[in-house]
Design a protein around this nucleic acid. Structure first.
Length: 941
DNA sequence: GTACTCACG
DNA sequence: GACGTACGTGAGTACG
């Protein structure tokens, strides 16, 4: 029967519950692994009490627990500063948030949240629907923002005070009845949510005014009539701000929810599910109570001994973790799926558990070209299946096998048709290792796989700095199992075959194992994310990036081959010319491309000074050495010119042409999310993060990166983001002030250091200060600065001493960071990203490297986190604009946009980037983004 | 496969 | 007191 008269809907404000539980209870941790669970415990007890108290004739027939999701809502679109003064969530509360969702589901209660909306909006929408249908509603919350909903069968219930709030209760609180509550709130504002309201007017005055004039609009229209001059002026001056405030406090009753009230019908908890969850949390008392009430035997909550395996260096001295079940790997449990019925059985299993690990086998590492050969699946550790789809017949012509399909394979379209609903089902989690690869391959077959979890990214969030995160390495380290190497199936080097030439039997063993390993890694890493306090990093900075980068990479950037080709020819000519000059100057022919031959010529034949040999016994000939020599001799300069042209030609004008995709006419790079230790992305095949810009000649390469007709490229980049982060993190008043004032930061540094007034600043002094500023970010050393500035070492050291003297906070930051790293074996970014520092306590030169890396990582990593946050928010922000985000270059984002929409795009993207730290972190310095646009990348910059 | 060099932030 | 270093990447070439 559809929801209506006689029905009673209970809506629980889950987020408020959590915060109350957190603050009401002492910190409590799970015994086995130290996971903070105090708020979860309080939450569970509150829910249980609510269920128990609500048995009887008045019991709700429908119920849901509603949560906030994310912190960025449509209200932030109206008003940047909405809730901007909120404190960041306490670190030990964060990991508990997802657990409260799990708790809700364990109680068999509907768990509701929606991106971009607050819990209050969902509650409002459901309450209005229920009321309109003739039912009763109880909102379990004491939040005053919800009071506007009271009346007509809607009541609030304050679970703490055990008090119901009806229309009269609202009148008591606000001085008006519910329908005028938003008017009062609009005037009074709200310091907690940072709603501005009218300055100097509180609830009392607001209610007085509203009661006198009837409603807010009338009041504002007739503001001139107000007798008190101050009050009158405030209302006239701030009318817009008051109207905005009203919008901010008004709840959205007409959200598009995608489900109706009937789905919220109350169901009894399933004893097994609930007790499993409570057991996992190691809650003994509530477990006993629940078990008794549900009439089942009280399960023993394990006196869990900290597990011996899975050791992870953590803040606590001897943190150790529960791992996945220690089940042997056995290929006997891997099966080959060849019929629809067999495949369906796996799909059913996935629906039953809510998750499935998936791995695709293809013909190429390039996702834009890879053709699907088969798919492996696993739902339970130790068991997996492989669905061969496009293996070719064995023993065809030569090395390449046959063109015929091998027998006993499902037709690819049929398999995909059956898998598509599962892979796109929002209720079933797809677990992958390096999900971006599989998402991209499947996207080309019309499947948008979501939601996903990625064990590679989990490993990265946990173990960045310790090792790489490829499946083989991670499996070996954390499962103690060496998976079959792909090389054994397809060979390597010239004789390498593609996966479709692999025998199906071998593919079953190999591919099933990968799905099995992935599932086991997921089981291993999932609980560790909380213990290492990187669950939020994983959820907010890693996982969401997969879809964003998928779209960017598939979009690609248009590259004009003919531009590159012309430049290539010009470079070839120039190289030939330089070669002649070099031979002439050297007095003999040699391979200019060979550093060892260059060394011999310069330091032996010509007898130039300063030749240093590397570990291979050859002379080293890096650019800075040659530059120094070039002041006295012609040859080194010519070699440098040659090298520059050769680099531009081979790496850029030539190689880049080969990367233009034949079908799209565009270049599709691939970003590795888990490549760089600090949180930066890395771009490969081709690397589009190192396209030349510093020299005029190299910069012209960027002219080949173009917009399609009718479009323009837009580049936005953060100005001095790392120095700003340093100023904030190390808390340097002078630097923060300079950034707030919009000063030239290097000039300001120079002025402070050398006591030179800004208007007397010379380029040379500024240059030296700039070098020091960068040096600080890199973990400065006298030697390094001396080398960079080409000054004596003692002079460089004197600069550094002076810098520390003028900005003592920098020294403190460096010392504190190193001390933290030595104690915890990791450092963190402002957003909690963890970068492990395994060599921080090493001896010898390694120690120096490790110290400098530890100083740099929080700065570089925080900048990386900020642009990640911007990228993740960008698709929603520019939704509706004819624009695409194409590339990321560490502090720059490149877009392609229809010409007419470029201004809108710049305005929006700039706002997203400049506000990207909020609300998680409130920086003491502004983030500034510069924008440029043009028909090609050189012009856009 | 490793070393060297050089492109970027 | 000597040592040997700026942080983070990827790619192309030479060479064993």
């Amino acid at each position: 029967m559809a929801f209506g008269k006689g029905h009673h809907l209970s809506l629980v404000d889950g987020s408020a519950f959590i915060f109350r539980a957190y603050h009401a209870l002492p910190p409590l941790t799970r015994k086995s692994d130290g996971l903070p669970v105090g708020a979860v415990s309080g939450f569970v007890n509150m829910i249980w009490k609510m269920i128990e108290d609500n048995r009887g004739p008045d019991a709700p027939t429908h119920a849901a627990v509603v949560f906030d999701k994310g912190s960025h809502t449509f209200r932030n679109e109206m008003y940047d500063l909405y809730k901007a003064n909120r404190e960041a969530m306490p670190e030990d509360l964060r990991p508990q948030i997802p657990l409260t969702r799990e708790a809700t589901r364990a109680f068999n209660l509907a768990c509701l949240e929606q991106e971009g909306f607050e819990a209050d909006d969902i509650i409002a929408t459901l309450a209005c629907k229920a009321r309109d249908a003739g039912g009763r509603v109880t909102i379990v919350s004491s939040d005053k923002d919800l009071m506007q909903l009271v009346g007509d069968g809607v009541e609030m219930y304050d679970a703490m005070k055990n008090a119901r709030i009806d229309r009269e209760g609202v009148l008591e609180k606000f001085g008006v009845y519910p329908e005028r509550v938003v008017d009062v709130q609009a005037l009074a504002g709200d310091s907690v949510d940072n709603v501005p309201g009218a300055p100097g007017i509180g609830i009392k005055t607001a209610a007085l005014l509203i009661n006198e004039y009837g409603d807010l609009e009338t009041l504002l229209e007739r503001a001139e009539e107000i007798k008190q001059p101050k009050r009158r002026q405030v209302l006239i001056d701030h009318a817009d701000q008051i109207r905005l405030s009203k919008k901010l406090v008004s709840l959205d009753c007409e959200m598009d929810l995608g489900y109706d009230l009937d789905t919220l019908e109350v169901k009894e908890p399933v004893a097994d599910d609930l007790l499993a969850f409570l057991g996992q949390m190691e809650f003994r008392t509530i477990t006993r109570r629940v078990a008794e009430k549900l009439g089942v035997e009280v399960p023993a909550v394990a006196e869990t001994q900290p597990a011996a395996s899975g050791g992870l260096p953590d803040d606590s001295a001897d943190a150790s973790l529960p791992g996945a079940p220690d089940l042997p790997f056995d290929a006997k449990n891997y099966t080959c799926v060849t019929t629809a019925a067999e495949l369906q059985a796996w799909i059913d299993k996935a629906h039953a558990t809510g998750w499935i690990s998936v791995d695709t086998e293809t013909t190429s590492l390039d996702e834009m070209k890879a053709e699907l050969v088969g798919i492996s699946l696993a739902v339970e550790a130790g068991h997996a299946a492989y669905v061969p789809l496009a293996h070719r017949e064995e023993g065809g012509v030569g090395l390449f096998g046959s063109d015929e399909l091998a027998p006993n394979q499902m037709p690819l379209p049929e398999c995909l048709a059956r898998l598509k609903p599962l892979l796109e089902d929002p209720a079933v989690l797809k677990i992958n290792h390096n999900a971006k690869y599989d998402v991209k391959v499947l996207a080309r077959y019309g499947i948008r796989m979501a939601p996903i979890d990625d064990t590679m990214l989990m490993s990265y969030a946990l173990h960045a700095g310790l090792h790489n995160h490829g499946m083989d390495e991670v499996s070996e380290r954390y499962l103690g199992h060496n998976p079959i190497a792909i090389k054994t199936l397809i060979g390597s080097g010239k004789a390498q075959r593609t996966f479709d030439a692999v025998k199906i039997d071998d593919a079953v063993t190999y591919a099933s194992e990968d799905a099995d390993v992935t599932l086991r890694l997921w089981q291993t890493f999932r609980p560790q994310l909380h213990v290492a306090r990187v669950a939020t990093v994983y959820e907010t900075l890693e996982r969401p990036l997969v879809a964003v980068l998928t779209d960017m990479e598939m979009a690609g950037v248009k590259v004009d081959k003919s531009v590159l080709s012309r430049m290539s020819n010009a470079f070839a000519q120039k190289m030939a010319q330089l070669e002649d000059e070099i031979y002439e100057a050297a007095g003999q022919k040699f391979n200019v491309g060979s550093p060892s031959q260059v060394g011999d010529i310069l330091f032996e034949v010509k007898g130039l000074p300063g030749g240093k040999k590397g570990k291979t016994g050859k002379y080293s000939t890096p650019a800075d050495v040659l530059e120094d020599l070039a002041t006295e001799h012609a040859l080194p300069g010519l070699i440098l010119d040659y090298r520059q042209v050769q680099k531009l030609k081979s790496t850029y004008t030539d190689a880049l042409q080969d990367h233009v995709n034949a079908e799209t006419g565009r270049v599709h790079t691939s970003y590795s999310i888990a490549g760089a230790n600090t949180g930066r992305l890395a771009s490969t095949d081709p690397n589009l993060q190192n396209i030349p810009i510093r020299t005029e000649e190299g910069r012209r390469i960027r002219e080949a990166f173009v917009a399609t007709p009718g479009h323009t490229l837009v580049s936005l980049d953060y100005s001095q983001i790392e120095l700003r982060i340093l100023a904030h993190t190390a808390d340097i008043p002078a630097l923060k002030e300079a950034f707030r004032e919009g000063q030239d930061i290097h000039a300001a540094t120079a002025s402070e250091m050398f006591s030179v007034p800004l208007d007397e600043m010379t380029p040379d002094i500024r240059r030296q200060a700039k070098a020091i500023n960068f040096g600080v970010i890199y973990g400065i050393s006298g030697w390094g600065l001396a080398r960079n500035l080409r000054i004596p070492r003692d002079e460089a050291q004197a600069f550094i001493d002076r810098y520390f003297e003028r900005f003592p906070g920098i020294r403190t930051y460096m010392d504190d960071t190193i001390a933290f790293a030595r104690e915890h074996m990791h450092v963190r970014t402002l957003f909690g990203r963890r970068i492990n520092t395994p060599e921080i306590n090493a001896k010898g030169p390694t120690a120096g490297f490790a110290r400098r890396a530890a100083i740099n990582a929080p700065i570089q990593g925080t900048a990386a986190d900020i642009i990640r946050r911007a990228m993740i928010r960008m698709p929603d922000a520019i939704d509706g604009l004819p624009a695409k985000m194409l590339l990321q270059v560490h502090d720059e984002l490149l877009f392609e946009v229809e010409e007419g929409a470029a201004d809108d795009l710049i305005a929006i993207a700039k706002r997203v980037m400049e506000g990207a730290a909020h609300p998680a972190v409130r920086l003491d310095v502004p983030l500034i983004v510069d924008a440029g646009r043009g028909a090609n990348w050189a012009l856009a910059h």
